[in-house]
Amino acid sequence: MSVILCLETATTVCSVAIFADKQLLGYQEYRIDKSHSNLLPSIIDTTLHGLSLSKADLTAVAVSEGPGSYTGLRIGTSIAKGLCYALEIPLLSVNTLHAMAAEVKKFNTKGAFLCPMIDARRMEVYACVMNSEGGVEQETAPHIIDEHSFSEYLKKHEVWFFGNGSDKCKELIGKNANAVFISDMVPSAKYMGELAQEQLQSASFKDLAYFEPFYLKEFRATKPKSVS
């Protein structure tokens, strides 16, 4: 039996899940902005302790690779790398949007296309488009949303939009009869198990020294406002 620790820090939601093969054993989630660095180590420890497991029981660590928050992804990746190095176990990475789509795909009995979205501020989102079989129709990329967004898919298919970036798209493209919006869905470690297990079985491990999250955008630091 393989035991995989999954970490999700791509957005303001910080979550941890433990899987035995593809079965979810335990899960914790906190929706506290800008707290990942403080919360994540203790969440890992308490989740393992609640399952009577220790870090020595882990087979691998899977981290959400993004896209998403630069700071959140950096924190999750750093902690995942540290655990893998100390325990001498493999590092896995799961595309944040693909994990969300894999969860929604379980309920897709209508053959709809799936479009997970993560808020990238203003009218921009990170998104991809996947068909009902899980194949990628449009790769993960940033999109500036307007009334023509995803029209090539909406002309031929019902498209399900979900994730914390989908709400601001509803006013612009929600009038299309083929556009369906699923609310209150955010990236979560509990969605990562299936894809992480597939990577473990195929030995698709990441290099601890060189792996970087899927930021999509370069980090831009802002100068603090001067105090008069």
Rank of each mutant, 00 (worst) to 15 (best):
Q197P: 08
F205C: 10
N164A: 10
E147W: 08
S183F: 04
F214C: 14
E158W: 00
A177E: 06
Y210K: 08
S151N: 15
H148E: 14
E212W: 05
I182S: 03
S183R: 02
Q199S: 11
E147A: 13
H148T: 13
M185I: 15
L216T: 09
A179H: 01
H157D: 02
E194L: 13
D207H: 06
F205P: 10
I145D: 08
I145C: 12
L172F: 01
M185L: 15
S149T: 14
Y210Q: 06
F211L: 04
S204H: 08
G193H: 13
E152W: 00
K190E: 10
Q199K: 15
A196Y: 05
G165T: 11
K168F: 04
A177V: 05
I145Q: 12
F150T: 03
E194R: 10
E171N: 12
N178I: 06
A177S: 09
K206N: 10
S204A: 11
S202A: 15
I145V: 15
D167M: 13
N164G: 07
K156M: 02
I173A: 13
S183Q: 02
F161V: 03
F214Y: 14
G165Y: 09
K175A: 15
D207Y: 06
I145P: 07
F181V: 08
V159E: 01
D167W: 05
F161P: 00
K170C: 03
D146F: 00
A209D: 05
F162I: 11
E198P: 10
Q199E: 11
S151W: 15
Y153M: 06
K168H: 05
L195I: 14
H148C: 15
V180R: 15
G165N: 13
V186D: 15
Y215V: 08
E171A: 14
D167S: 14
K168R: 04
L195W: 14
N164K: 05
F161M: 00
H157A: 05
L154R: 03
E194W: 07
K190V: 11
E212R: 10
A177R: 06
G163T: 04
G174T: 04
S204W: 03
F214V: 13
S151G: 12
I182R: 06
F214H: 14
F150Q: 02
A189G: 08
E147C: 13
K156P: 01
L195F: 11
A196V: 07
N178K: 07
I182N: 04
A203N: 03
A177W: 02
A203L: 02
V180P: 10
S166F: 01
A189L: 10
L200T: 09
D184R: 11
A189E: 08
M192N: 08
S149W: 12
Y215D: 07
